Simulated scan of single mutants.
Amino acid sequence: MKVKIINKSHHPLPAYGTFEAAGMDIRAFLPEGSVTLRPMQRALIPTGLYMQLPSGYECQIRPRSGLALNYGISIVNSPGTVDADYRGEIGIILINLGENDFTVNDGDRIAQMVIKKYTRVEWEPAERLDRTEREDGGFGHTGKN
């Protein structure tokens, strides 16, 4: 599938790290300088990227596992969604859940994007739902083991 993209940064387009990778690494575009996130601080990090997705598709923005494990860096609204009708710059809302300051530099790989097809639904109002073995059990009702 081909997707139109405008890259106003001086960095490479998002790219897959390996042949079977689902996500493409996306880079920070910080021409004015680095951004330092203190613990529990969040910031909108620009990418310089604008895209035109086909109808019926979304772009999911997900954390990078290495940043999450090694530094506690995540995405506040994970996964973030870029809708097919959005034409603005893609921004990444990073949060520092770690114990130390974390500096984001221009060109750093800060997130990954996955392009996904989605289905729209029509609500069917009902008085009751079909019964299941689980019923309303949730939030760990099956235990830890």
Rank of each mutant, 00 (worst) to 15 (best):
T103K: 07
I90Y: 08
A43C: 08
F29G: 00
Y57D: 10
A15T: 15
G107W: 04
T81M: 12
Q60H: 12
I92W: 01
I115E: 00
G33S: 01
G88I: 01
P12Y: 15
K116F: 00
I61R: 10
P12H: 12
K4P: 01
N70M: 11
K117Y: 13
L53A: 04
I26D: 11
L49G: 00
L30E: 03
E58V: 10
V76K: 03
F19K: 15
G91S: 11
A28D: 09
H11M: 10
R27G: 14
L49C: 06
S55V: 12
I5K: 06
L44P: 05
Q52Y: 10
R38N: 11
K117M: 09
H11N: 11
G98H: 07
M113Q: 14
L94T: 02
S65I: 10
L97N: 11
K117V: 11
V104D: 05
M40Q: 15
R42F: 11
A22F: 08
K4V: 00
G72F: 08
K117D: 07
I61P: 13
P54H: 03
E20K: 15
E58Y: 09
K4A: 11
Y71K: 15
P46K: 08
V35Y: 02
G72M: 06
Y86P: 06
G91Q: 14
D25Q: 14
G107Q: 02
R38E: 07
I5V: 13
I90Q: 05
N77K: 08
I6W: 15
K4R: 11
R42V: 04
T103I: 12
L13N: 13
